[in-house]
């Protein structure tokens, strides 16, 4: 899913380079938090992204299937905990998404000034 967008057409519109998996507000939030935190626990994501457990699980499943995150389940004492870590592909995808967003903003601002 991500392979198609790794080499966007440089002459095309910046939006064509956006990854459908990453360019989604919640999933982008998950990637951003996991990148900054090194590793993040399921509960932290649920609280700070204001999601239900089921909804978060669906988004994580999409990201895991795309190879962007690793999900590790374990116990801390008697409490089950799920830790999410960004993969190398996830880091790259996040950096590319941010770059595309900045390009899009620059394009929008240029277009607005031309008018």
């Amino acid at each position: 899913m991500t392979a198609d967008t790794d080499t966007p057409d440089p002459t095309g519109h910046p939006a064509t380079g956006l990854d459908e998996v990453v360019h989604q507000r919640i999933r982008l939030g998950i990637l951003a938090i996991a990148h900054e935190a090194r590793r993040v626990e399921f509960g932290y994501l649920r609280t700070h992204l204001d999601l239900t457990a089921g909804n978060l699980s669906k988004h994580l499943s999409v990201l895991e299937t795309a190879g962007l995150v690793d999900i590790e389940k374990g116990y801390q004492g008697k409490r089950a905990r799920t830790w999410i870590t960004l993969t190398t592909a996830g880091n790259t995808a996040l950096a590319e998404e941010i770059s595309h967003l900045k390009t899009l903003i620059a394009r929008i601002e240029t277009t607005t000034e031309d008018r």
Partner: peptide, 12 residues
């Protein structure tokens, strides 16, 4: 895009 970047900054 602006909103998404702002969200990323806020979360990080």
């Amino acid at each position: 895009p602006r909103r998404l970047l702002l969200d990323i900054r806020t979360l990080t």
